[in-house]
């Protein structure tokens, strides 16, 4: 009986696996689901730590040699990434001036590495305190499984609306220059 059950299981498994297009045991498939959810959480935690001015937690989302880059600059290593945030103000400062909406997550996990894409919409406090959509862009990430969990190996921030030149103009106008 047990032998028969085992044989049936062996037959049934490949069918289920091919239906998903994912090879592997229930354990491996579960891990993939967990990985996707963990990486989605990093995408949101990134915004939460950035908007919450939690510099340490933000830097800790990266691998020790992790890299943050956009069209203007590259910051490599947690210390450099943490330092980058000081231009937003002091660590731990209350922030009611702006936040990021994170959307459209696309996560692709391959074993112990992953790539992920998400959209951000930066919302700023406008006239009379109204929330004003101010900057939209795309994050493109490569991630690695790093002992305890997933970490960002490289994040590319690509500002789209406005572009860098337009953004500089808007900020200059806000500063009354």
């Amino acid at each position: 009986m047990i032998r028969w059950l085992m044989a049936a299981t062996l037959v049934a498994l490949p069918v289920a696996a091919s239906a998903q297009g994912t090879a592997g045991s229930v354990e491996a498939r579960l891990r993939k689901v967990e990985d996707e959810l963990a990486i989605r959480r990093i995408q949101v935690d990134y915004a939460a730590h950035l908007d919450g001015r939690d510099h340490k937690a933000y830097a800790a989302l990266f691998t020790p040699d992790g890299e943050w880059t956009n069209a203007g600059a590259t910051h490599k290593g947690r210390a450099a990434i943490e330092k980058m945030l000081t231009m937003l103000g002091p660590d731990g400062a209350e922030n009611k001036a702006n936040f990021h909406i994170i959307s459209n997550p696309q996560v692709n996990v391959t074993g112990d590495t992953a790539t992920a894409v998400s959209r951000y919409l930066f919302v700023m406090r406008g006239k009379d305190g109204r929330p004003v959509p101010s900057l939209a862009g795309i994050y493109t990430d490569s991630l690695v499984r790093d002992g305890a969990g997933w970490k960002i190996k490289r994040r590319v921030a690509n500002d789209i609306m406005p572009n860098r030149e337009e953004w500089a103009k808007i900020i200059a106008a806000q500063n009354g220059e």
């Binding site: 959509p133 101010s134 406005p162 337009e166 808007i170």
Partner: peptide
């Protein structure tokens, strides 16, 4: 994209 490049 809005007139000044802002997302609308």
């Amino acid at each position: 994209r809005g007139p000044n490049g802002e997302p609308q």
